[in-house]
């Protein structure tokens, strides 16, 4: 399988933890922006950004909700920065089953940062606008995005393996069922 590299304008939020004052305005405005109708309600638990903070250990880390993951990690890391220990869940962006973070409090559905994309274009995400201490800074940059160049020959090889394992009839039935579901 070969890779194709494309240039693409990407968005990101740079987080300067040294500037975070722990006010959680980012959580507040995120939850308000994503309410329906917009700004009609407010609840940090629905926010797609959360500030992990432990004041007595001087830990202030804003973390954005990333991809949903269906299972929790097998092994966990521990980071030591400046003599302080951090559990890697503290930095993890995933909505995962092992913690309540980044799940809708009512439905349990996972939350993910969308950079406030349905805001008028050219606007910064709301959390960045409301972080006037500049701990959160919006950046657009030209990033490289790799795309798998899928070749039919590769698909053939995969299918042959499936047929060898399950039999042609079973694979056909499965494909038909998946096609029906859309």
């Amino acid at each position: 399988m070969s890779m194709v590299v494309n240039k693409k304008l990407k968005k990101r939020i740079r987080i300067d933890v040294d500037k975070c004052n722990g006010c959680r305005a980012c959580e507040m405005i995120c939850s308000a922006f994503h309410a329906t109708p917009k700004y009609s309600s407010n609840n940090p638990e629905r926010s797609r950004i959360r500030v992990m903070f432990e004041p007595l250990r001087n830990i202030y880390v804003p973390v954005y909700a990333g991809e949903y993951t269906a299972s929790e990690c097998m092994g966990k890391n521990e980071y030591v920065i400046d003599g302080k220990k951090y559990d890697d869940c503290g930095f993890c962006r995933a909505a995962c089953p092992s913690r309540t973070l980044f799940h809708e409090p009512d439905s349990g559905l996972p939350l993910k940062c969308d950079m406030c994309e349905d805001n008028p274009p050219d606007e910064e995400p709301l959390c960045v606008q409301w972080c006037i201490t500049d701990a959160l800074v919006y950046e657009e940059y030209e990033g490289e995005e790799t795309e798998e160049d899928v070749k039919i020959a590769d698909v053939d090889i995969s299918m042959e393996e499936m047929v060898a394992k399950y039999g042609l009839q079973k694979v056909l039935e499965t494909v038909a069922r998946m096609a029906q579901k859309g």
Binding site: N21, G22, C23, R24, A25, M28, P55, L56, R57, N58, Y60, I132, T133
Partner: peptide, 23 residues
């Protein structure tokens, strides 16, 4: 660190750590 209350950018408080004493 200079720190704030909920939803306020003013940094009126601070985390204070005096050597030998708890923060």
């Amino acid at each position: 660190r200079l720190i704030s209350c909920y939803n306020c950018p003013m940094k009126c408080g601070a985390v204070i750590s005096v050597p030998g004493l708890s923060t």
